[in-house]
């Protein structure tokens, strides 16, 4: 799942809801935060997804543009569009919330 909108956008509720449902069904979930979506890291529900087995990727460029410092956290992977491309190519289903 790709999320490119910020905390104020209703996409966040959709992303969290779909993610929780997917994890509850035992799916492998890869969540990629990009553009304003990098701010979703501030939402504890998004953080909690990683604790439930989701892989959390965050656009390093998006953080840099917004002067958001990169954390040294095991649950978050900062990366670029190569990883997004891998997710687009390698997943059974791909949902983009923009």
């Amino acid at each position: 799942m790709l999320l490119s909108t910020g905390l104020e956008h209703p996409n966040l509720e959709t992303a969290v809801g779909l993610s929780e449902a997917a994890l509850a069904r035992g799916a492998d979930l890869y969540l990629y935060l990009i553009d304003d979506g990098v701010r979703a890291l501030d939402d504890p529900r998004v953080r909690a997804l990683a604790g439930r087995g989701a892989r959390l990727f965050v656009c390093a460029y998006g953080c840099q543009k917004r002067r958001i410092p990169l954390e040294d956290a095991d649950t978050v992977t900062y990366c670029g569009l190569v990883v997004l491309t891998d997710l687009i190519n390698g997943t059974d289903r791909f949902i983009a919330l923009n």
Binding site: S4, I34, D35, G80, L81, V82, L84, T85, D86, I88, N89, N98
Partner: peptide, 19 residues
Amino acid sequence: SHRANEAMRIGLGITAGDN
């Protein structure tokens, strides 16, 4: 909006991945 540019950037990145 910056999002038009961001969309093009993302599309370009995907193109570079042989898509």
